[in-house]
Design a binder for these strands. Structure first.
Lengths: 122, 122
DNA sequence: CGGTATCCCGGTCGATACTG
DNA sequence: CAGTATCGACCGGGATACCG
């Protein structure tokens, strides 16, 4: 029983295709409810913890978890500054920055979809 | 207390920004664990229920739910053919087809991320 | 073939309270 | 300021069995 025959025809997607199939992999990284929104907030440079908290309506613990997850996945970097008051900034890593193209297509499509929704309810 | 003041500065994201913010809206549509993968499978034309089941390693009930959700959101259409054996095909709607650009950017980035992962673990 | 109906489990998210 | 700890509720998703 060679279970290792994963590459059949891209069958068995989802089981262990993380790191193999680009779609499964991306969905895994984006699984958190806030991932897309957080990455969007960091699109234009570093943002502090409480600033994120203010911009997004999210529980503190949840934000902390999502940030840790995104950091673990290599999408964002956490920088601590201790001069004066404690300051922690989050920013995109190089691979995280490359995600901007996805964010842009999401923004474009999202707006088209919103237009579609409005037309639908008339 | 006018709770209706949502438009402040794009604050309160996530609460009820579905239909307003393109990122929140897109994430809502993609919230299902299999959404991206299903949309990808339908990218090149209609696919039958059991064919999807074969291509993706997913529980039948789960697939059924996700398809119903995507149909409700207007992303896919369900077509039933009763000539001969029962045949049900799922295909992208016009707004679903527009999602292809997002899928393409996801594929591209996903592959870059996979490359990043491999380099990381060496 | 193309689904429902259940049942259950694990995980996520949120609220609240507390901390270095 | 930037978190952690805890707890509870909710629910998405999987397995299994059954149905028109």
């Amino acid at each position: 029983m060679e279970i290792e025959q994963i590459e059949e025809t891209t069958k068995k997607q989802g089981k262990e295709l993380f790191g193999i199939c680009p779609y499964v992999t991306t969905q895994t990284v984006l699984q958190g409810k806030w991932a897309i929104l957080i990455l969007y907030q960091l699109e234009n440079g570093p943002v502090r913890f409480n600033e994120l908290l203010r911009r997004i309506d999210i529980a503190q613990g949840t934000l902390s978890n999502q940030l840790k997850y995104l950091e673990k996945e290599g999408m964002i970097r956490r920088n601590v500054y201790t001069e004066g008051v404690l300051r922690v900034e989050y920013e995109l890593t190089p691979i995280g920055e490359k995600f901007r193209t996805v964010l842009q297509s999401i923004e474009k499509w999202g707006n088209e979809y919103i237009t579609y929704l409005k037309a639908k309810h008339l």
